[in-house]
């Protein structure tokens, strides 16, 4: 998912275009999945698919394990845009932190900047969902995808925080409601509860975006 600023109109327009472009393709692909649907051979179905930050993280940590800082720089270059985005739009200077850490060959600094960025990615998506709470398609996908990033943070959270994060994400998903069909089965979104769960998640991750809403 690209890292364009999330505002309601832009997201709606881009989502509509995405749906139009992807619907036919997805239906065809979906048909084949119905045919090809098998049990997982290995790994979780929750594997994120193509996410620049996740793919870049994989390459970066591989290079970091080998203390190959040229490869670390190359891996960082592939996802630099994601880091710059947080500086430009949320006032979080993770790009500068990361570049400094790579230059100084500071392993811990690189890891810390990466973890901070993943946490920021989670909260950015949660806030994006909050702004689009009445657009079920956008809100639900943003929250569901944020769960994939939380799973990557498992090793950096305490057991208690992991459970708190899990409960918060489930609560956030439930408070988005259901779209229903022609009004049947519709469940409206509950913004107040959503904000409570979003705040719980902030506490679990021990991270708040600098420009996060205070209410």
């Amino acid at each position: 998912m690209s890292l364009k600023p999330i505002n309601s109109a832009l997201v709606k327009t881009s989502t509509a275009k995405t749906i139009n472009k992807m619907t036919v393709k997805s239906l065809i692909l979906g048909f084949f999945v119905l045919l090809f649907s098998t049990q997982s051979l290995a790994y979780s179905y929750a594997a994120a698919g193509k996410e620049p930050l996740i793919d870049g993280r994989e390459a970066l940590l591989k290079a970091l394990s080998a203390s190959d800082y040229n490869a670390v720089q190359t891996a960082y270059d592939t996802m630099q845009k994601e880091f710059i985005y947080f500086n430009e739009h949320h006032g979080l200077n993770v790009d500068e932190q990361m570049q400094t850490a790579i230059t100084n060959k500071d392993q811990q600094g690189v890891a810390t900047a990466l973890i901070t960025t993943i946490k920021a990615e989670v909260m950015r998506r949660l806030e994006g969902a909050e702004q689009n709470i009445n657009d079920y398609q956008v809100a639900k996908v943003l929250v569901v995808k944020s769960k994939l990033f939380i799973d990557l943070l498992a090793a950096d959270l305490t057991a208690e925080n992991r459970q708190q994060a899990d409960t918060a994400i489930r609560g956030a998903l439930a408070s988005i409601g259901n779209p229903g069909v022609f009004g049947v089965g519709q469940k409206p979104a509950d913004l107040t509860r959503y904000i409570e769960y979003r705040t719980d998640l902030q506490a679990a991750l021990q991270f708040t975006l600098p420009d996060a809403p205070t209410k």
């Binding site: 749906i19 992807m22 619907t23 393709k25 997805s26 239906l27 692909l29 979906g30 999945v33 079920y136 398609q137 639900k140 996908v141 569901v144 259901n178 779209p179």
Partner: peptide
Amino acid sequence: GWAYIEEGR
């Protein structure tokens, strides 16, 4: 809803 299509993709 239409998010099903996104997950299908």
